[in-house]
Amino acid sequence: MKTTALLSAAALAFASSTAVFAEDSSDPIVIPIHNWSSQIVMSNVVGQILEANGNNVEYVTTDSQAVYESIRLGDVTLELEVWEGAFGASFRAALEKGGIVDAGDHDAVTREDWWYPMWTKESCPGLPSWEALNDCAEVFATAETGDKGRYLDGPVDWLKHGKERVEALGMNFTVINAGSAAALWAEIGAAEADKKPVVVFNWTPNFAEAVWPGEFVEFPEWVDGCDKDPAVGPNPDALYDCGNPATGYLKKAAWDGMEGKWPSAYKVLTNISFTNPQIAEMAKLVDVDEMEPEEAAEAWLEANPDVWKSWLSSGS
């Protein structure tokens, strides 16, 4: 398996050798791996593309927030999934400190917001409207929230401002922060058994879509400045009185020394751009078909040669 991949990589490298800049360093390009499947597969896909480009590649497992510091130091060479919502802040902070560069956007857009699994609609038919959600708040009540609805927000450090939004929109909900993504899934998984209605924080693209079909709650549409200017949005006196942007960016980032050290690989990186369906497909290979990430990457590359080969050849 591995040998075939290497062989094909070598063949490709030979075929496209004219496109390869002679000065690309033979040091390995270090690609970070995080703990969610789409990112793991995508990293493997890109790693194999770079190997096809004639580079040496190595993977390192890192924390998805700490990685930006590692990129600045050059310990890690690039990052393939910079989510606007989740990592925008860390990324911007690293940009300001220097040592990291923006390597362009994917086609894919990201969205993070209040979300419910489909079965919830049965107990609260007015969904996805937020007003309808608020009207059936007591459906979401639990022992410790009294008669208020319970909304399970992401970990506090994701800074999702759930509490502020509940206050700004005068909703009858209590916001509880989960400690990790796993805690969110466990909560949905537990609710699944007897189809208990729940509303939790979620995002796309994400494996959960394939496991639990669901929808985002529609809040007042995001307007620029909603998080900075109280006047923006329906409540003139409060911040965070809109939903999150429905089309957040998904960026690539690189160490600022990458272009000098591996110019060809850097060019390939800037060319790379995945779409939402492509990312969902990658995640599915691992999450639903239970493949190992390297296999999933090979399978994806084999099925979609026309997508990625163009990124290589346009490198010249």
């Binding site: 970070p32 791996i33 703990n35 969610w36 499947s37 793991i40 993977y59 390192v60 497992t61 890192t62 924390d63 700490a66 990790s180 993504a181 796993a182 899934w185 466990a186 949905i188 998984g189 494996f207 959960a208 496991v211 691992v286 999450d287």
Partner: peptide, 18 residues
């Protein structure tokens, strides 16, 4: 949690995808 591959990392990834 600080990027050691292996059983722990796989466990975290598995838990992260339920």
């Amino acid at each position: 949690f600080i990027g050691m591959p292996g059983l722990g990392a796989k466990l975290l990834a598995m838990m992260g995808s339920f």
